[in-house]
């Protein structure tokens, strides 16, 4: 049957949700390379944290982050407060884990002019732990550092924004929250050159708020070789 363009657009959005659910249900599956999408971002399930959005947290004596590295080269990063990215990056360097974390404020994009994005990401390079304790607060990821080639760095962009959801970790509309985007890069990681993110085209629909975590007001990580490169600051 022929569908109207509106029906087709709705179908595309819904299929993305189904695909996200399938991905989230697959234990030990490598995380999505890019978590942020413009709309209908993530299926809201009990595993919403494992798919990339966590509520603002920290405080109460809970460590802001924790990093461990096993003898086999498996690094485990746990973050409960996303505001301490500089210290976290320092801790990663101390443990010789080739990874870095960048904090991107709401409404901003981060331009990394000295890095180049790598598209060929080996399977198993980073995973969201399948046996993550149910009561663990915050976000956790494991990196198999033995799969990184010399000169490569795993870069996490932590975006501040507003999450809308009626279920999952962020349990109220409009709550300040964080999303992450994971990129494999070569070259030097420098401090972000911030530029205003494109304005949000539209607020989330009630149905999006109902079943998905939609991230508003968040920018992106931009590299010189990004598929749709944004102009660097000042150009």
């Amino acid at each position: 049957m022929n569908l109207t363009p509106l029906d087709e657009r709705r179908l595309a959005d819904l299929k993305q949700i189904v695909a996200d659910r399938a991905l989230a249900a697959e234990p030990g599956r490598r995380a999505r390379r890019r978590v942020l999408r413009p709309a209908l971002a993530l299926a809201a399930t009990a595993g919403a944290v494992a798919t990339g959005l966590v509520a603002a947290s920290g405080g109460g004596g809970t460590p802001a982050f924790a990093v461990t590295r096993s003898a086999g080269g498996i690094a485990t990063i746990t973050i409960t407060d996303f505001r301490h990215t500089a210290q976290l990056s320092q801790e990663l360097r101390t443990l010789r884990i080739p990874a870095a974390v960048l904090y991107i404020p709401a409404g901003m994009s981060c331009y990394e002019g000295s890095a180049r994005e790598v598209d060929d990401i080996p399977n198993g390079l980073y995973v969201l732990p399948a046996n993550r304790p149910a009561r663990l607060r915050g976000w956790q990821m494991q990196i198999n550092t033995s799969l990184l080639k010399p000169g490569q760095t795993l870069l996490f962009g932590l975006f501040e924004g507003i999450a809308y959801s009626s279920s999952g970790t962020v349990n109220s509309s409009g709550k300040r929250a964080y999303a992450y985007s994971t990129r494999l890069i070569t070259g030097k990681v420098t401090a972000c050159q911030y530029r205003p993110a494109p304005p949000l085209s539209m607020p989330p629909s009630p149905s999006q708020r109902k079943l998905s975590l939609r991230f508003a007001d968040a920018g992106s990580l931009v590299f010189p070789n990004s598929v749709s490169p944004a102009a660097p600051p000042g150009k």
Partner: peptide
């Protein structure tokens, strides 16, 4: 499988979207 298989969901959607909209 329509909740986890995009192809199954697409077939399901195409079968029913007109009726649901109606």
């Amino acid at each position: 499988n329509l909740g986890r298989d995009p192809d199954v969901f697409e077939a399901f959607y195409r079968r029913h979207v007109r009726a649901v909209t109606g």
